[in-house]
Simulated scan of single mutants.
Amino acid sequence: MSAVDPIVRFENIQKSYDGEVNIVKNLNLDIERGEFLTLLGPSGSGKSTCLMMLAGFESPTQGTIYLDGQALNKIPPYKRDIGVVFQNYALFPHMSVAENIAFPLGVRKVPKSEIEQRTKKALDMVRLGHLADRKPIQLSGGQQQRIALARALVFEPKLVLLDEPLGALDKNLREQMQIELKHLHENLGVTMVFVTHDQSEALTMSDRIAVFNDGIIQQIDSPTALYERPANEFVATFIGETNVMRGTVEQLINNTCQLRLNSGALIHAEAGAGLQIGQPACLSVRPERIDFTLASDAECNRINGHLAEYIYHGDHIRLRLTLAENDDFMIKVPANHWQGSFTPGQATELCFRASDCRAVPVA
Rank of each mutant, 00 (worst) to 15 (best):
Q145H: 08
A132H: 08
K109H: 07
Q138E: 06
E116L: 12
K120Y: 09
I137K: 13
A132D: 13
F103E: 00
Q143G: 01
Q145I: 05
I147K: 07
S140I: 13
E116A: 11
I101Y: 02
P136E: 00
Q145W: 15
P136A: 05
I115L: 01
V110F: 12
N100Q: 02
P111G: 05
S113L: 06
A148D: 09
D133I: 00
E116P: 03
L128E: 08
K109C: 00
G141I: 14
V126Y: 03
K109Y: 04
L139V: 07
M125A: 12
E116K: 14
I115A: 11
K120V: 00
R118W: 12
F103Q: 03
D133R: 04
D124A: 05
I147F: 15
A98N: 05
I115P: 02
T119L: 10
L128N: 08
T119H: 03
H130T: 10
E114R: 12
A122R: 06
G106S: 01
K112W: 06
L131I: 11
A148H: 12
Q143Y: 12
R146G: 11
G106Y: 15
G106P: 09
D124K: 10
L131R: 03
R134K: 06
R108G: 09
I137W: 06
H130R: 02
G141M: 09
K121Q: 05
P104G: 06
G129C: 15
Q138G: 07
E99Q: 02
G141N: 13
Q138D: 07
K109R: 11
V110W: 13
E114P: 05
G141S: 09
P111W: 09
P111H: 14
S140R: 13
Q143L: 04
Q145K: 08
A148W: 05
G129K: 14
R146H: 14
I137R: 14
V126I: 12
V110E: 11
E99P: 12
L131P: 01
P136C: 14
H130W: 04
P136Q: 15
L139T: 14
P104Y: 01
R127G: 13
E99A: 02
E114D: 02
A102D: 00
D133P: 13
L123C: 10
I101T: 09
K109S: 14
H130E: 08
Q138H: 06
D133H: 09
V126F: 04
Q117I: 06
E99N: 10
G141V: 04
I147R: 11
I101V: 08
A122K: 08
R127P: 11
R146I: 15
V110N: 04
R108C: 04
K112G: 00
